[in-house]
Lab assay of single mutants.
Amino acid sequence: KYSDMIVAAIQAEKNRAGSSRQSIQKYIKSHYKVGENADSQIKLSIKRLVTTGVLKQTKGVGASGSFRLA
């Protein structure tokens, strides 16, 4: 599940300011076997996790910027 992968990526990075979408994508692609549409799936999952309150956006708008666990 992409949401689990995103949470794992943010936990692994341990950046106080949060993790960027690009760094999350890079982590997921190197640690998991994902399909061609992974980028758009990650983007959608990040937006969903922010609206449900699992992630907090520290910089930027939408799916860009930095995110950390709430």
Rank of each mutant, 00 (worst) to 15 (best):
K1I: 10
K1R: 11
K1S: 14
Y2R: 01
Y2M: 10
S3K: 11
S3M: 12
D4K: 09
M5P: 00
M5V: 02
M5N: 01
M5A: 03
M5C: 04
I6K: 15
I6C: 02
I6L: 01
V7W: 03
V7Q: 03
V7A: 09
A8G: 03
A8L: 05
A8V: 05
A8M: 06
A8F: 04
A9Q: 00
A9T: 01
A9L: 05
A9E: 00
A9R: 02
A9I: 03
I10F: 00
I10K: 00
I10P: 01
Q11V: 11
Q11K: 13
Q11L: 14
Q11R: 14
Q11F: 07
Q11S: 09
A12I: 03
A12T: 04
A12F: 06
A12D: 05
A12C: 14
E13N: 12
E13K: 06
E13P: 03
K14H: 13
K14P: 09
K14W: 06
K14F: 06
N15H: 08
N15M: 05
N15E: 05
N15I: 04
R16L: 10
A17Y: 13
A17S: 10
A17Q: 10
A17N: 13
A17E: 11
G18T: 03
S19V: 12
S20P: 03
S20W: 04
S20F: 03
S20T: 14
R21Y: 15
R21L: 15
R21E: 15
Q22A: 12
Q22T: 09
Q22W: 08
Q22Y: 09
S23C: 10
S23Q: 09
S23N: 07
S23A: 11
S23H: 07
S23T: 08
S23Y: 14
S23F: 11
I24V: 02
I24T: 00
I24N: 00
Q25L: 15
Q25K: 07
K26P: 00
K26E: 13
K26G: 06
K26A: 12
Y27C: 03
Y27Q: 01
Y27F: 08
I28Y: 00
I28S: 02
I28V: 15
I28P: 02
K29W: 05
S30P: 00
S30L: 11
H31D: 02
H31A: 04
H31S: 02
Y32M: 03
K33L: 10
K33P: 11
K33R: 10
K33S: 09
K33V: 11
V34G: 02
V34T: 05
V34K: 01
G35E: 07
G35K: 04
G35Q: 05
G35T: 06
E36T: 11
E36D: 11
E36S: 13
N37Y: 06
N37F: 07
N37S: 06
A38T: 04
A38F: 11
A38Y: 07
A38I: 13
A38Q: 04
A38P: 04
D39Y: 09
D39F: 06
D39M: 08
D39I: 08
D39E: 08
S40F: 13
S40R: 15
S40W: 13
S40Y: 14
S40P: 05
Q41Y: 11
Q41W: 13
Q41V: 08
I42K: 01
I42S: 00
I42W: 03
K43H: 11
K43L: 14
K43S: 13
K43Y: 14
K43D: 15
L44S: 09
L44W: 08
L44K: 14
L44R: 14
S45A: 15
S45D: 08
S45Y: 11
S45V: 14
S45M: 14
I46C: 04
I46D: 01
I46M: 04
I46G: 01
I46E: 02
I46A: 01
K47S: 09
K47F: 09
K47W: 15
K47E: 13
R48Y: 14
R48K: 10
R48V: 12
R48P: 01
L49D: 00
L49S: 00
L49W: 02
L49N: 00
L49Y: 00
V50Q: 03
T51S: 11
T51D: 14
T51R: 14
T51H: 12
T52A: 13
T52P: 00
T52L: 14
T52V: 09
T52E: 13
T52C: 15
T52N: 10
T52Y: 07
T52F: 07
G53S: 01
G53W: 03
G53Q: 03
G53I: 03
V54F: 06
V54W: 04
V54P: 00
V54G: 02
L55N: 01
L55K: 00
L55V: 05
L55M: 02
K56E: 14
K56W: 12
K56Q: 11
K56C: 15
K56G: 03
K56I: 15
K56D: 05
K56F: 12
Q57H: 11
Q57T: 07
Q57L: 08
Q57E: 12
Q57M: 13
Q57Y: 15
Q57K: 08
Q57C: 11
Q57D: 03
T58K: 04
T58Q: 07
T58A: 08
K59D: 08
K59S: 10
K59A: 09
G60L: 06
G60C: 10
G60F: 06
V61D: 12
V61L: 09
V61C: 14
G62C: 07
A63C: 14
A63N: 14
A63Q: 11
A63V: 11
A63K: 12
A63E: 12
S64E: 15
S64D: 14
S64F: 09
G65K: 13
G65A: 15
G65N: 12
S66D: 07
S66F: 14
S66M: 13
S66C: 14
S66Q: 11
S66L: 15
F67C: 05
F67E: 04
F67D: 03
F67Q: 04
R68Q: 14
L69N: 05
L69I: 09
L69D: 03
A70R: 06
A70M: 08
A70Y: 09
A70N: 08
A70C: 09
